[in-house]
Amino acid sequence: MIELFKHKKSWQGTIFYGKSYGKFLNETLEFDFEIKKIEENYFEAISKDISGFGVNPTEAFIRGEINSNKISFVKKYRNDLMFDENEEFYLSEKESFPIIYKGLYDENSQTFEGDWKMKAKIYLLGIIPIPYNLKGTWKMH
């Protein structure tokens, strides 16, 4: 299945925000995905957000694996995009939390589809870390 990435290096995708995003449930984010390195079943890629809810203007670095029709990868943005109490986005100087993607390739539609999740923290009173999970779905063609 890794042969697929050898023949097609540029992909376009969409993430869909899940229930953990509250009123932003089902908002979408469009992204580009460019394969940079392939070694056996492993790959490295660069992703850039294009449009939609929560566009991070920095690149994301991706490392992943394909086995049969299954794909899994971890995406980390150069700078984390944070959400403040006024529901405004701002860039942090820190690298993002890892975002874990898992999915399947459908040969008929020539599309990857799956789920994504990210463990994040918010800080109560600016000092007490409270962990929480963010989740959603994704597809890429």
Results as ranks from 00 to 15, higher is better:
1 M>A: 15
1 M>F: 11
4 L>W: 00
5 F>Q: 05
7 H>L: 12
8 K>G: 08
9 K>T: 11
9 K>D: 09
14 T>G: 04
16 F>R: 06
18 G>Y: 02
18 G>H: 04
21 Y>D: 04
27 E>R: 15
27 E>Q: 15
28 T>N: 10
29 L>A: 07
30 E>Q: 13
33 F>N: 02
34 E>T: 15
34 E>P: 07
36 K>Y: 08
38 I>P: 05
38 I>M: 11
42 Y>S: 14
44 E>S: 11
45 A>V: 01
45 A>I: 00
46 I>S: 01
46 I>R: 00
48 K>H: 06
50 I>Q: 11
51 S>V: 08
52 G>L: 06
55 V>L: 13
55 V>S: 10
56 N>P: 04
57 P>H: 07
58 T>K: 06
59 E>N: 13
59 E>H: 06
60 A>Y: 03
61 F>Y: 12
66 I>Y: 00
66 I>R: 02
67 N>E: 12
69 N>L: 08
70 K>G: 03
74 V>F: 09
79 N>H: 13
80 D>K: 11
80 D>G: 10
81 L>A: 10
83 F>S: 04
84 D>R: 01
85 E>A: 14
87 E>C: 10
89 F>H: 12
90 Y>P: 03
91 L>I: 12
91 L>E: 05
94 K>E: 15
96 S>Y: 03
100 I>H: 01
100 I>M: 05
102 K>Q: 09
102 K>H: 08
103 G>E: 00
104 L>D: 15
110 Q>W: 04
111 T>R: 05
112 F>M: 02
114 G>C: 08
117 K>S: 04
119 K>A: 08
121 K>E: 14
125 L>K: 14
126 G>Y: 07
129 P>R: 08
129 P>S: 07
130 I>P: 01
132 Y>N: 05
132 Y>D: 03
134 L>V: 06
135 K>C: 07
135 K>S: 10
135 K>L: 07
137 T>D: 07
137 T>A: 10
138 W>R: 03
139 K>S: 11
139 K>N: 13
140 M>I: 07
